[in-house]
Structure formats: C-alpha cells, structure tokens
Amino acid sequence: MNTAFVYVGAAVAEIAGCFAFWAWLRLGKTIWWLLPGVLSLVVFAYLLTLVETNAAGRAYAAYGGIYIVASLFWLWGIESVRPDRWDVAGASICLIGAAVILLGPRG
C-alpha cells in the first residue's frame, strides 16, 4: 500500500478520534461521541502498521510531519480557522523532516 495514502488515512483517523474526545470534554457533546472516537483511534493505530519500514519508531517519526499538515487542514476545514504563515512555515519544515526520515539512504 502506498505510504502517503496510509499516512493521510492515519492522520484523518487520529485527528477525528482525538476531536471526538475534544468535542466531549470541551464542546459539551454527549459521551456517545467517544465510541466513534475510539474506533477511529484503533483504525489510526492499525494503519500505521502498514507503513513499509522495518522500524516502528521511524514510521512514527515520519508520520509526525504528515500529522501536522493534516491538523492544519482540519483547523481550516473543520474549525474554520485559517492557518497563518507561521503555521504553514512550521508545517513545511516538518514535511521536509518527514521526507528526510522516509527517503534517506539506509545502509
């Protein structure tokens, strides 16, 4: 499976799962929001196991950059808060870091 698709799916699942807890605790939603939230977090964890690498830590480290970018899209699309230039600059730096981790030569 394509690593980029796995990472994007994992990011959406993790953010949605965490947002369910946020909605329950901070937005006053019912406790029933936790059920799809927990299921979403299980999907997130499963998807990260599909990354083509022999080290879990490397998969998680590279995923961090994708998660940050996805979080900013969530901020903009779901929460209607437009990321500022500092958000975009920080996310760009993180994506470069993720690419170095994923694509760096291993020997």
Rank of each mutant, 00 (worst) to 15 (best):
W86F: 13
L72C: 00
E14V: 13
I66W: 08
S92G: 08
F21R: 06
A4V: 14
F21H: 00
V88H: 02
V38C: 13
P36G: 07
F5P: 06
A10Q: 03
N54M: 03
W74E: 02
K29V: 01
L50W: 15
L27I: 07
A62F: 03
V38G: 14
I66Q: 00
T3Y: 08
T49F: 11
Y46R: 00
L72F: 13
G97T: 07
L35N: 06
V88E: 03
V100S: 08
A16K: 02
L35T: 14
A16Q: 01
S92Q: 01
V8Y: 04
A45K: 10
I96D: 04
V88K: 01
W86H: 15
C18S: 14
F5N: 12
A99N: 04
G17E: 04
L25I: 06
G107W: 10
Y67F: 14
A16V: 12
T53K: 07
W76M: 02
R58C: 05
G37M: 03
Y67M: 13
L34A: 15
A89H: 03
P83Q: 08
P36K: 11
I96T: 15
A4R: 15
A23W: 00
G104T: 10
A89K: 03
V81H: 06
L103G: 10
I15F: 04
L25G: 00
A70E: 01
Y7P: 15
A99C: 12
G65H: 04
A62W: 03
F19P: 00
F5L: 14
S71W: 03
W76C: 02
L47Q: 07
N54L: 02
E79R: 14
P83N: 04
V6S: 01
G9V: 12
M1Y: 12
G37K: 04
V100E: 04
R26Q: 08
T30H: 11
L48A: 03
W24E: 04
V51R: 12
W74T: 02
N54C: 00
E79M: 12
A89G: 05
R85L: 13
I66A: 09
Y7D: 07
G104H: 06
A13Q: 06
G17L: 05
I66F: 13
S92C: 01
I68C: 06
